[in-house]
Nucleic acid binder design. Structure first.
Lengths: 199, 199
DNA sequence: ACTAAAACATTACAATTGGTATGTTATTAT
DNA sequence: ATAATAACATACCAATTGTAATGTTTTAGT
């Protein structure tokens, strides 16, 4: 019982350090050695807990990235309240509260999506699952708003969801190129206007 | 004189093969060896033409990626005509005409932006230059439309430009996760509507 | 024709890569 | 208390990485 906990703890430690390193430097740029140097453990420990580097990558996605998106981008969508201010919370306030690190390093999902080649199916499926969950939550919110006659019936909710997610992921990439927030502020102005025009 | 041409030809050959490989697999996933195997030349040839791998990466950006963006996304913006249909040409028609490869492999700029870590300044500058050029052309188009009273004066053109670019780059990433075009169609519906609402 | 330089090829190399084999130590069930 | 197993550490491996040194061949100016 105690062993089980310690095992899970080191597993999480490895995933933790890996997430940060992958996030900041990219998946391919970080070796197992570098991850384990950060944990102050050895390679032996790594291959005891993980089959290979791929398994670590998938664990980072499902154990860290997924929950990040769920907590920050999905959960707020499920709360009761004005759908427009909820949307602004998720797609605007979230960005305003970003740390310097989160601005410089971009979005963990987006980084991975664009780094991973089209041949690495397992990663794609894991990442797709997150995006799909996010998209679905958005559609539900928008459909509810539609039912309550808050947005026009001709609005294609799936389309709006994809557009919002795309723009969000897009700026987070673009922002990485700058060392100021001008581009984020431009984005914010545009999304806010876009969300208002849904009414 | 003839030698000069041949030299430039092999240089371009290396850049060509590198671009395709980087595009499909990612920059870090492709070694100098793999690039040169594709050119059927040797490493000696490579290091005769390039200082290091980094120089190749920068050459790919400025010699291939930049012109790609210029031809497809910037030049059409400079033509005379209805700004709204021009915008749709660039942000909609272009996507509709994508090859399967261009759908699966995403956007070359976006791939690089999100793969390259925040520490690799040279790459960032090269990529930023492209985005800035694109953004500027968009702003000019929108400002002209504003002058002609085609779009409302309260529209922030810089903001719209950033939003359009972000959404475009965003979907190209998201699309990589799927093996169908649903997400692209959703995006298209939304941008078209967004562009129309600029009037 | 001859020489210098450019365009490449060959070989070598230390460092790093992902991964394995084989240890040792701690924990647990009996 | 002991035997088994889990949690690691150590040492090793072949392959690949980016790069340098040193070749050879082609081209160009004289």
């Amino acid at each position: 019982m105690k062993q089980e906990i310690k095992s899970e703890l080191t597993r999480q430690l490895i995933i933790d350090k890996a997430f940060v390193l992958f996030y900041k430097n990219g998946f391919h740029a970080i070796s197992v050695d570098k991850v384990m140097k950060e944990t102050k453990l050895t390679k032996g420990a790594f291959y005891h807990h993980f089959k290979d580097k791929k398994e670590l990558g998938l664990a980072v996605i499902s154990d860290r990235i997924q929950s990040r998106v769920y907590d920050n981008m999905i959960l707020p969508l499920l709360e009761v309240g004005d759908p427009f201010s909820i949307l602004k919370t998720v797609f605007c306030e979230r960005i305003k509260n970003f740390s310097i690190e989160e601005k410089q390093s971009g979005c963990p999902i987006n980084n991975l999506i664009n780094e991973i080649s089209d041949s690495e199916v397992a990663y794609q499926l894991a990442l797709k699952k997150i995006i799909e969950e996010w998209k679905l939550a958005l559609i539900q919110l928008l459909e509810k708003a539609k039912t309550n006659n808050l947005i026009a019936s001709e609005v294609n909710t799936s389309s709006v969801a994809v557009f919002l997610i795309s723009a969000f992921e897009g700026v987070r990439g673009i922002r990485k190129l700058y060392n100021n927030d001008v581009v984020l502020e431009d984005y914010l102005l545009a999304v806010e206007r876009y969300i208002d025009l849904l009414r």
